[in-house]
């Protein structure tokens, strides 16, 4: 990972004053167990948010509620002013602006890398095949593996598969990118190649919410770091104050545990 570049300054020029993502009093229960408690959050365009916390804190659940892979029971999830509701078609329409990268990659193993990328543009956006393919190739170049286009997912290494997954999400030109522990399933030597792609994506101005344990990445890229514990947001701060001077005892305990090695 490139550590020579100075950490990003906090120059926030908001193109619009309305948040792209708004969580208002959102609560979610699994059965009778409350896993998210009254989450309030605003994310503005171009912001990079890193979410961290111990396992079971609800960070994955929260990010999956943002694109309704999990359905919340109370409160609102509002994307660009439109709230998710009971209308399935409307929900699909809202979801188009959000791309997601999973911990387990979830590439389609029976399709080639190129076909993985072009499937959604062709079938959802009705793009002609050659246009979709050139879009896919340009994105494969952006994630630096254009030569793997005709291979199949199971023939690639973990790091390559995750980069393909990022490119696949980008093919739909989303406004927001969600990352659910993108490097947790990777061998250590492959983590950096994926983080480099994510840094380049961040530098290009993409609105990103990343759930991760990679604290160096947070320092480098994040505008705000969110710490969650037991279903609540405990602390939100820019990376400098967050890592150097956390305000809450919980946050300090967590940081001491993960930054120790």
């Amino acid at each position: 990972m490139n550590t020579n570049v100075l950490p990003r300054e906090q120059t926030k020029s908001k193109t619009s004053s309305r948040p792209v993502i708004e969580l208002v009093g959102m609560s979610k229960w699994f059965g009778s167990f409350q896993v998210l408690k009254d989450i309030d959050l605003q994310v503005y365009e171009g912001e990079r948010i890193v979410v961290c916390g111990p396992s079971g804190s609800g960070k994955s659940t929260m990010i999956r509620c943002i694109n309704q892979l999990e359905v919340h029971q109370e409160g609102d999830v509002i994307i660009n002013g439109e709230a998710f509701g009971n209308d399935v078609a409307k929900n699909d329409h809202i979801r188009r602006e959000i791309g997601m990268v999973f911990q387990q990659f979830n590439l389609f193993p029976h399709l080639s890398v190129l076909e993985n990328l072009t499937l959604a543009p062709i079938w959802v956006k009705e793009m002609p095949k050659h246009e979709a393919e050139s879009l896919a190739m340009s994105l494969l170049e952006r994630v630096r593996i254009p030569e793997q286009a005709l291979k199949y997912p199971l023939q690639l290494s973990g790091g390559q598969q995750q980069r393909v997954a990022i490119a696949r999400a980008l093919c739909m030109n989303p406004q927001i990118m969600l990352f659910d522990e993108p490097t947790s399933a990777l061998d250590p030597e492959m983590i950096n190649e994926v983080l480099d792609v994510m840094i380049e994506l961040a530098d290009s101005g993409m609105t990103m919410i990343v759930v991760t344990h990679e604290m160096n990445f947070a320092r480098r890229v994040a505008d705000r770091v969110i710490f969650m514990d037991q279903g609540e947001i405990v602390e939100v701060a820019p990376p400098g104050p967050f890592f150097d001077n956390p305000r809450y005892d919980r946050t300090r305990l967590f940081l001491s545990q993960i930054l120790h090695h």
Partner: peptide, 8 residues
Amino acid sequence: EAARALGV
């Protein structure tokens, strides 16, 4: 999930 996230 991946397909849904892509809007298929």
